[in-house]
C-alpha cells in the first residue's frame, strides 16, 4: 500500500542545515514533490510537499521529522469565495468541475459550496473580478 499526501512542514532556523530531503528519499524511500517553500537560514521556514511512498515507510518518515522537531500538518488549502467582490457574472460556473460554484436558476445568482470544492484552482485563474482566493 502506498500513500500520497500534501503536507506542510514547519521548522526552526537551527535545523535548516539538516539534509531532510535526502533522508526522506534515501532512508525512507519517500518521493517528495516540493509545491512551495520558504527557507531562510535565520528564520522559521516552511515547505509544502506532496509526499508519497509506502505506508509503513511513510509513518517512519513522519516519526523522523517529528524527532527533529519539525511539525507536519496536512495541507489545508481552501478556496474562499469573496461574495462582496463577486460581480455575479457566472463565468466560473461553466468551468468548475464539481458545481462548487454553481448557478441558481431561474435567479441566475451564483453561490459557492466549499464542501464540494476540490481546489482545482480553475476559478482562481479565470474569475475576472478576482473574487476567489486561496487560503492556507
Amino acid at each position: 500500500m502506498t500513500v500520497s499526501k500534501k503536507v506542510v512542514l514547519r521548522f526552526d532556523a537551527k535545523i535548516v542545515d539538516q539534509p531532510i530531503m535526502y533522508s526522506l528519499i534515501k532512508d525512507y524511500g519517500l518521493i517528495p514533490n516540493i509545491l512551495k517553500a520558504e527557507i531562510n537560514p535565520h528564520k522559521q521556514g516552511y515547505l509544502v510537499l506532496e509526499l508519497s511512498g509506502e505506508n509503513q515507510k511513510y509513518a517512519e518518515g513522519m516519526e523522523y521529522l517529528n524527532s527533529l522537531g519539525i511539525s507536519v500538518d496536512a495541507l489545508d488549502e481552501k478556496v474562499v469565495w469573496l461574495e462582496d467582490r463577486c460581480m455575479q457574472c457566472g463565468v466560473c460556473t461553466g468551468l468548475c468541475p464539481t458545481q462548487a460554484l454553481s448557478m441558481n436558476r431561474p435567479s441566475m445568482e451564483v453561490s459557492f459550496d466549499g464542501e464540494k470544492c476540490i481546489v482545482c484552482e480553475m476559478c482562481l485563474k479565470s474569475c475576472p473580478a478576482k473574487a476567489v482566493e486561496l487560503r492556507f
Binding site: 460581480m87 457566472g90 463565468v91 435567479s107 441566475m108
Partner: peptide, 11 residues
C-alpha cells in the same frame, strides 16, 4: 455543451 454567461443577469 455546458453554458455560462460572462455578463451578469442578477446585476
Amino acid at each position: 455543451v455546458k453554458t455560462a454567461p460572462i455578463s451578469s443577469y442578477p446585476k
